[in-house]
């Protein structure tokens, strides 16, 4: 699916990286534990997280992840958004929980890593 599909499925809002909404994303990983994210070998996954701080963006950067879905209406700060822009990372926010977001996206074909 494309990031545009992700936005539609979770009824999300794009905070930055609108220009990359045609990117394809095949794999999803949901975690608030950044060390867990850093163990992933796959690139170009959708990171689904409720952890809204600079380290979520930094972890994505180090892991070559270019799209993050923040759940439960988490509000990324301006610093986070600026950091994401620098790294060409798309940030999407949704009111859905991590469980619901993951379920909806899985149902529509987003694949798990494990």
């Amino acid at each position: 699916m494309t990031l545009r599909d992700v936005v539609e499925i979770v009824q999300g809002t794009v905070l930055c990286g609108e220009e990359f909404l045609d990117r394809e994303v095949k794999l999803g990983f949901a975690s608030d534990l950044m060390s867990d994210v850093l163990t992933l070998l796959a690139d170009d996954i959708l990171l689904i997280t409720g952890l809204s701080n600079n380290q979520a963006i930094r972890t994505a950067e180090m892991s070559d992840i270019t799209q993050i879905l923040f759940v439960r209406n988490k509000k990324p700060t301006k610093t986070m958004i600026d950091l994401a822009r620098e790294q060409n990372i798309t940030i999407i926010v949704t009111a859905c929980s991590m469980f619901k977001s993951s379920g909806l996206l899985y149902q529509k074909g987003l694949q798990p890593i494990y």
């Binding site: 850093l38 690139d43 701080n53 600079n54 380290q55 930094r58 972890t59 950067e61 180090m62 892991s63 070559d64 610093t79």
Partner: peptide
């Protein structure tokens, strides 16, 4: 904590400029 990762980010940029493979860059940077 607000700047944690800044050094890794700088070194990542450096490694990419040196044309080191993305697989190696990722494990070094992680």
């Amino acid at each position: 904590f607000s700047n944690a990762g800044k050094i890794s980010s700088s070194i990542k940029t450096l490694l990419k400029q040196l044309n080191i493979s993305s697989v190696d860059v990722k494990r070094i940077i992680v």
